[in-house]
Amino acid sequence: MFNYLVQRIGTIIPTLFFVSILIFGLQQLLPGDPALILSGEDRDENVIAYLREKFHLDEPLPMRYLYWMGNVLQGDLGESLRIQQPVLDLILQKLPVTLQLAAMAMVIALVIGITAGIVSAVTKDSVWDYAANVISLWGLSTPNFWLGIMMILFFSVWLGWLPASGYVSPFEDLKANLASMIMPAFVLGNAIAAVLMRHTRSAMLQVLNADYVRTARAKGLVERIVVLKHALRNALIPIITLGALEFGTLLSGSVLTEQVFSIPGFGKLIVDAVFNRDYAVVQGVVLVTATAYITLNLLADLAYFLVNPRLRG
């Protein structure tokens, strides 16, 4: 396992290097001059020239990449062209928000998705199976934007139970924080739960028909132990992969959900940055999320070893 771990970590560095080139290169394909958009309505020529010089926009692409990478290696992700705050500060402001939202959404998705998937597989072709399938279809087919607006109308405008949008830090007021995050987390978790449910169901159905499960039952083990200990453990492998990928996606920000609930996370940050051609912010955020994504995949690979003893050999 140690060798495997070293080998996997060894692939991360070149991967990140290529990712950084991709991030930088692809962004340059965006049409539009950042200096022009950042110079505001008045488009003062002096301001445009100043912005080009300050952010090296006139220099050749490889030089700009080297400036950026050189600073990144020293822990400096640059400065937002638009609001003139360090990109690292912006990321550190948004990261806890995005992490909390992703974690809450993932917990909701796992609880609903895996539970419904197991119930659906165990009680195949029963009312519970059909009910779980209907819920899954609902989750898959409901647009986040619509569900978010409907939840705001119901829970905030009509019932007045939850704030319509906005974010409060948990260190400032935990109750208000949970109140502001529960709806967006549910909206995000709802869609992922549906995917997880479908995968759990099919993985469980496959495993429940396997010889070793039949053997376990023949040994007289109670159904609860057969399902949860013997079947689920094996079925979890594809679910872990899927969960890690979904969590990685959540970490890169959920543009529509963040927009509807005015949650100041990565999604809003990066979309605003793209529209304003705020290169440093786009590069910084994508680099951080790409790193998180790669790390999560590594952790998912390691988790296989924990749930499946056969892989340890």
Partner: peptide, 23 residues
């Protein structure tokens, strides 16, 4: 067992949502 867990979880989530009225 799993249904029991699910029911417990759902009840907890609803109680949480109702309890944390907007402040």
């Amino acid at each position: 067992m799993s249904w029991e867990m699910f029911t417990r979880g759902a009840t907890l989530a609803l109680a949480l949502a109702a309890g944390i009225a907007a402040t």
